[in-house]
Nucleic acid binder design. Structure first.
Lengths: 152, 152
DNA sequence: TATCTCGTTCAATTCAAATTGAACGTTCTA
DNA sequence: TAGAACGTTCAATTTGAATTGAACGAGATA
């Protein structure tokens, strides 16, 4: 059952054990301690520790207090749409932005090459055409994002 | 310049060299041979060969014939939207489908557990609730896909 | 204070995927 | 027919990331 969740999370390039833990917590009726996870998933405590902190930093899980027990307990954030939003703003968004500036720099370098006669005019045209295409696609994508956000 | 494209492609979990090659071809004004790529990217011929076949199978690049030369030349598919479509139907779509059947199986197992008294009614309710949430999200996502396809 | 029980950290290991070199088959060329 | 120029394949290596064991530090307990 949990392996299903693990695979789900490998889709988004997260460490396997991290996925396992989120899956486990998502399906678990009660909060679990590190030791619980270690036992149920047969992973080391070190993995469990790093994975929980990763997930917590992504706000995918929360730490909860269980009275009379000084261990840390965790429960999953059940709203996956919210997680997607976080993933977008904190992960995809920045990459898109850096990609944009990179494209601009490349475009600049290209113009430079033309000015110095390092490339033919035809080549320059084709190249900058293609760079522009990517930029356009990126912008469309950015425009689509808030729409998707509402929709999901 | 090309390293930019390489990074771009690491985003979608493709081998680095594959990304490099697509980037190179995308920006190259003329078709390139395997040896060209080997020289320009400093990679082995083996890598170039496997990468080009990968890309060709994804229809991301095309083989073209240059008269008077018996080497294979390649050029990039310039329409990236089309590539996205291919990526979706051939990569994401199938995963979503298998994910769906997995969810159904899990849901079945859960009902079974309830029937045999292996879990409490409250637990069952919470679990199947959550499974249903994922299903719903998946459906929304599937519904969104064709919309995005038109848009990009 | 001495001893547990936790969670964290970090160097070492393991593991999987990417990359490579070398051998090979095929097709052209002399 | 011998040899060169290709592209492909496959076992071996490299590389980078995930995982682990062991040492550690901070609180609790006695």
């Amino acid at each position: 059952m949990i392996e299903a969740a693990a695979r789900l999370c490998q889709l988004i390039a997260l460490p396997r054990s991290t996925g396992q833990i989120y899956g486990l917590l998502y399906l678990s009726p009660s909060a679990l301690s590190l030791d619980d996870m270690v036992e149920l998933l047969r992973i080391s405590k070190a993995s469990a520790s790093t994975a929980t902190r990763q997930l917590a930093s992504l706000r995918a899980i929360r730490q909860v207090w269980v009275q009379g027990d000084r261990r840390d307990y965790f429960e999953a954030e059940p709203d996956i749409s919210a997680l997607l939003r976080i993933g977008y703003t904190e992960f995809l968004q920045p990459r898109l932005k850096s990609s944009r500036t990179r494209l601009e720099r490349m475009s600049g370098a290209l113009n430079d090459d033309l000015a110095r006669g390092r490339i033919s005019e035809a080549d320059h045209k084709l190249c900058s055409e293609r760079l522009k295409n990517i930029s356009a696609l990126e912008q469309k994508f950015q425009a689509l994002a808030p729409l998707a956000e509402k929709f999901l």
